[in-house]
């Protein structure tokens, strides 16, 4: 238990409504997230993935079962700040999570709340802005930035707290393709270079495919868990859950259905192209 950054055990969550009817949103989740890993949680709307994310830093508390963050029980109110400084969150709407009217003041917000000394805050803010590539915008007004830039500021605000883990709750859902690429490459860099654990909540298959581990949720349960290449091989199973596979895997699947011998684990365009190339050249060889 000490080793896991986030661990849930038989996590159950129900919303309490006034009529007393309590729909179960999370239904017995057992999940362990290792430090330094890059985990994507995939599922369509209503699968409970965002609700699960809110349990990772005690914004929501379990109705049943337990959640530990770095060995701290999230139900322990006395350690609330220790839990939240460990796991930072980035949300969907960039406008609704920026607090200050100057970029650097916003990045400073987290460390200020933690009571970090002023010089140290300055150092962290500059370092965080450099990490996300926004150092040239330190004194700008956030509302004049693009969506992708705003999300990068939000990420800087989280890493200025020096967390062990960042949870991105559909952080790219409102962005254009350029913004999505910006955010995703920033997050991958953090994971690779700083060893920060990344949990990416998404319904974009292409984003999920880039993670090291893919967890698929459906109706408040975990239905698949493994490396993306393996999870996506089960094309029929995923389609039965109402999920599409990445286009490259879809193409390979169709080719297989047509009787061609191609593997299903090509997750990016380059890999897919290489497979197709070898398939075509093989065909030429056998003909000749």
């Amino acid at each position: 238990m000490k080793d896991a950054i986030i661990k849930t055990q038989q996590l159950v969550f129900r919303y309490t409504t006034e009529e007393g009817v309590a729909p179960t949103v999370l239904d017995g989740i057992d999940l362990t997230i290792e430090p330094g890993s890059f985990v994507a949680i995939l599922g369509h709307n209503g699968s409970g993935k965002s609700t699960l994310a809110k349990h990772f830093n005690a914004i929501l508390l379990p109705s049943g079962g337990k959640v530990w963050v770095s060995g701290l029980d999230t139900a322990d109110e006395a350690r609330l700040l220790d839990i939240r400084r460990q796991v930072g969150m980035v949300f969907q709407n960039p406008d609704n999570q920026i607090v200050a009217s100057v970029v650097e003041e916003d990045v400073a917000f987290g460390p200020e709340n933690l009571g970090v000394p002023p010089q140290e805050i300055r150092r962290r803010v500059d370092a965080a802005l450099t990490t996300v590539g926004m150092e040239g915008y330190a004194t700008r007004a956030p509302h004049l930035l693009s969506g992708g830039q705003k999300q990068r500021v939000a990420i800087a605000g989280v890493i200025a707290m020096e967390p062990a883990c960042i949870v991105l709750d559909e952080a790219t859902a409102m962005l254009d393709p350029v913004g999505r690429r910006e955010v995703l490459s920033t997050v991958k860099k953090l994971n690779r270079e700083k060893g920060i654990t990344v949990v990416l909540i998404t319904h974009h298959m292409d984003e999920a495919a880039q993670a090291g581990r893919l967890v698929v949720m459906h109706d408040g349960r975990i239905v698949r868990d493994g490396p993306p290449a393996r999870v996506f091989q089960d094309v029929e199973g995923l389609r039965a859950l109402g999920l599409e596979v990445p286009e490259t895997v879809g193409l390979m699947y169709e080719l297989r259905q047509a009787g061609l011998d191609v593997p299903l684990d090509a997750l990016d365009v380059d890999g897919c192209a290489a497979e197709l190339f070898s398939l075509l050249t093989q065909g030429e060889k056998s003909e000749a």
Binding site: I59, R84, G88, F91, F109, V158
Partner: peptide
Amino acid sequence: TAMECRCY
């Protein structure tokens, strides 16, 4: 919620 997440 976002402010709470940032330890406010």
